[in-house]
Design a binder for these strands. Structure first.
Lengths: 214, 214, 214, 214
DNA sequence: TATGAATGAGTATTCATTCAT
DNA sequence: AATGAATGAATACTCATTCAT
């Protein structure tokens, strides 16, 4: 009769709730990345999470709130990953840029569904959460652009390059290659993907000595 | 059984019908690229096309078939554009690559809605029309990869570069930069966008003499 | 250019029209008997008849008018069949009854689809053409009842039998057995079906010596 | 995976749900028997049952599934009624047959709408639920045929009678007479209807002295 | 905390009918 | 006499949301 007896009795209640929320996040991110937001129903999410439909509303208030919370949860992870990528401000800017790209590839490998979902939203302009998505993109591209500016400052970049556009270009390059990798050749090691990107980027650097990586 | 023998033989799909289909394509591509497939109603599409709702069903059979047909119609345009970009097989491969990238940028400028729509679909794996989208990407990336292979054949490319991944990277670069341009700085001339891309690409080419474009 | 050249040139036009109408009847009776009126579309009927949809409207004015015309066409055939069954008023009434039953079985064998269609309509009370169907039933049952009355008049029928109800009973018996025959054992000869009915009916005759219920 | 273990185990379909389903059955059987399946809308059914339209879909999945479930629900009632009609295997077979016919007449009197609906479906061969209908008929006719076989076994039936066809004939006789009674003379007592059927059937019994066809 | 039966506004779809050719 | 593209009212169906338990 007492359904509590099913969960561990001495854990505080909030942990149970937190676990439910996490299961819903995981169910939602997978389904939405595959099918899209509109084509994914609350029923499906609840079923995949192993809870009743009402639980979604009890925990998040609604489908779109769940989605927003999901993306904010994703931002946090992405931001953490990128910050860890180049923690040392005194490091060589070229290596810092390489490290950021590596972090991007690894993030997509680890959070593939989240990445697909964000990319699918990235090109629509009329959606409720457009602002949120734009913000994520801007932050991510900003990290790349900052590295390019640092390189430009020390003359290691072609002076005629628009670092804003170039940052956007590198971002698109990383995301596209990484997701194609996950889709078409998921067994290939991440290192090969990262190496290709590094080689392409090094072509951009201070051309004289550039064919860098040994 | 064959009542064709009674009507005018071999009559192609009527002009009226073809015109109706085109109007529906044009209405659908704009609405769906802005709002997404799920958030766009058949009523909206029909109204924008200036036809009755039933006409969508008469001509395509359903919403999803309309969408599939729309994307196939889009392929034709994109493929034609890219193929026309470098028709001369004897041209300098570096210039041919540049021309393809320019064509890509210009296509996205001219068919922005179609491009957004294709990119939004590009990352989902579970949709009915996934195969169609994949096919488009493969064809488009194939044109780029072919140019890279031509460059590699004459030693104008880093020999350690995986041209498959690199083609995917260039594709993502072009699309991302071009759509960011349309979204954030639509008044900027296409030429500046294209110049940035060219500079980045030239970094990749035969490193010794590369800082090419004057 | 002149589509007339397809039909026989020296036949009057009305023959062509008559042929079209007959083809539509045949298409409609088959489809509706299998699927029902509501589940059969004008498109299906036209396609099966090998004409364009507009032709149905040109010839009949609408779906329900086609159906009404179809049933009237059916009545004519049924009435003709039953009238021919016992043309001689001086014949033995028992043989006359047997002949009517045989005619019923043979009619259903020859116009199976029409019979199914009429039976399916027979039990609904709220339909547009209920009156028409009722009229057919009444006429058919009337023929049977008349034979029973003739038998009663010469003392060949149990005097306590309500010939109205008994006519209805024989009608239902013939139709049910005949349609089950067509559905389940279509290769069985009509004669066996008719023999069974005759045997059952003969049990009813010759009142004096039959073991009546107390 | 198994979230049943969380809720009360083995809980049968909730009473509320069961009540809702029954109300929908009762609403549907009346409307469809009068108007036909195609002419009856889900809106009408829901309104008459006093529930929202969505409830039909929540409980049955669709209009046609509701209809199939309705007919299966009907089978149970008819089969139960006929089986209860002659429960004593030692009873006189003639009386057992009479009892079955009486039960049939009474069933139709009590569940007139259901009977009309089943008869209207009985002759179509192409419908989704054709199998279901066929099964009902087979079961019902089987009860009658079993009684005829019992009579044949003790020599109380004409030996030249095909009991399969005869069972079908009796079934059609009962249904036709009973529905004509409800349609045309609903105030007449059921007993008169039953008496007529009994008289007709008794004509079939006691082979020795009945005037067989030459 | 969680559930799942019920809801109803919103949408996709069907199809008899019209009409210009 | 016939055609078939187009129509739009009618209808089946979906699914986010509510709420009593």
């Amino acid at each position: 009769m007492d359904r509590m007896s099913v969960s561990t009795p001495d854990r505080p209640v909030s942990n149970r709730r937190e676990a439910t929320r996490r299961r819903l996040f995981e169910a939602a991110v997978t389904l939405i990345s595959e099918q899209g937001y509109g084509a994914t129903t609350v029923d499906e999410i609840a079923e995949r999470a192993g809870v009743a439909k009402g639980t979604v509303y009890y925990n998040f208030g609604g489908k779109s709130e769940l989605y927003t919370a999901l993306m904010e949860w994703g931002i946090t992870r992405l931001a953490d990953t990128l910050k860890e990528a180049a923690p040392d401000p005194d490091a060589d800017p070229a290596e810092a840029l390489t490290a950021v790209l590596r972090a991007g590839v690894e993030f997509i490998g680890a959070h593939e569904a989240l990445a697909r979902l964000l990319m699918a939203e990235a090109w629509r302009t009329n959606r409720t959460w457009y602002t949120t998505v734009r913000q994520i993109r801007t932050e991510a591209i900003g990290v790349v652009t900052a590295r390019l500016d640092a390189l430009a400052a020390i003359g290691r970049l072609r002076p005629d390059l628009d670092t804003g556009l170039a940052g956007s270009a590198l971002f698109g390059m990383v995301v596209t290659v990484a997701l194609d990798w996950r889709t078409l050749q998921p067994d290939r090691p991440a290192e090969e993907v990262h190496a290709t990107l590094t080689r392409m980027v090094h072509g951009l650097l201070g051309t004289s000595d550039s064919p860098a990586d040994p």
